[in-house]
Amino acid sequence: MILKHWLQEFEQESNNTRKLLQSVPQKDLSYRPSDISWTMGELAQHIATIYYWYVGTLTQDVYDIAADHLERGSPNDIKETLTLFENNVKKARAALASLTEEELSDEWTMKVGSKVVLGPLPREIVARSFLFNHIYHHRGEMIVYLRATGNKVPGLYGPTYEDSMSSN
């Protein structure tokens, strides 16, 4: 039953992520709110990349992220990032659809080479935190970047503040 709901959430939230990434302007990709922050382009690319991690997380018991090479393109080209996003969403959707309820309780581990960086944890916990919630967290950051650069933020869960002000 949880997978049915996750698939619905995945579709709804992928659409929201798409709206957000489509609102990122090419002209502001180099914006960085602080010296330790990603640029807007790097953040957009990271959001698109998380969808790629669905495959390793949902189809492998041990995911070595160092051995998995993804061609990402330039974080300075929003069109490349949108293409990366769309390709990764297709892969993520297929991985999520291939999962069974029983596999949700399987132990899962992430490694970087020989170093364990996450887990072992039940796949269900990892999917919720490392995949779904991770995307939502970075989308919130992107909204801050967009507002800080004077760009319009799309309504993800209804009208934005700006939308409500323009109707007055």
Results as ranks from 00 to 15, higher is better:
I2S: 15
I2H: 04
I2R: 10
L3T: 14
K4M: 09
Q8E: 12
F10T: 10
F10E: 05
Q12R: 15
Q12G: 03
E13N: 15
S14N: 11
T17H: 04
R18E: 14
K19W: 05
K19D: 02
L20Y: 00
L21S: 06
S23H: 10
V24S: 07
D28Y: 11
L29Y: 12
S30Y: 01
Y31Q: 06
P33M: 04
P33A: 12
S34E: 03
D35G: 12
D35L: 04
D35S: 02
S37M: 12
W38F: 15
W38D: 01
E42Y: 01
L43Q: 14
A44G: 12
Q45Y: 13
H46L: 09
I47L: 15
T49W: 10
I50S: 08
Y52L: 11
W53A: 10
W53Y: 15
V55S: 00
G56W: 03
G56N: 15
T57L: 15
T59K: 10
T59N: 08
Q60P: 02
D64W: 10
A66K: 11
L70Q: 08
E71C: 01
E71V: 09
G73P: 04
G73M: 00
S74T: 08
S74F: 12
P75H: 09
I78H: 11
E80D: 07
T81H: 02
T81Q: 00
L84K: 00
L84T: 00
L84E: 00
F85T: 08
K90E: 15
K90D: 11
A92N: 02
A92C: 04
R93V: 10
R93A: 12
A95S: 13
A95E: 06
L99W: 03
L99N: 01
T100A: 08
S105G: 01
W108S: 05
T109D: 13
T109G: 06
M110G: 03
K111T: 11
V112F: 15
V112I: 02
V112S: 13
G113D: 06
G113F: 01
S114V: 14
K115H: 13
G119P: 09
L121I: 15
R123D: 02
R123M: 09
I125V: 15
R128I: 06
S129E: 10
S129A: 15
F130A: 14
F130G: 00
L131W: 02
L131N: 06
F132V: 00
N133R: 13
I135C: 02
I135Y: 06
I135W: 06
Y136D: 10
Y136N: 15
Y136R: 14
H137M: 13
H137S: 10
G140Q: 13
G140R: 09
M142F: 00
V144C: 05
V144D: 07
L146H: 08
L146I: 08
R147P: 02
K152M: 14
P154N: 05
G155S: 09
P159I: 03
T160C: 00
E162V: 03
S164V: 14
S167K: 08
S167T: 12
S167P: 09
N168L: 12
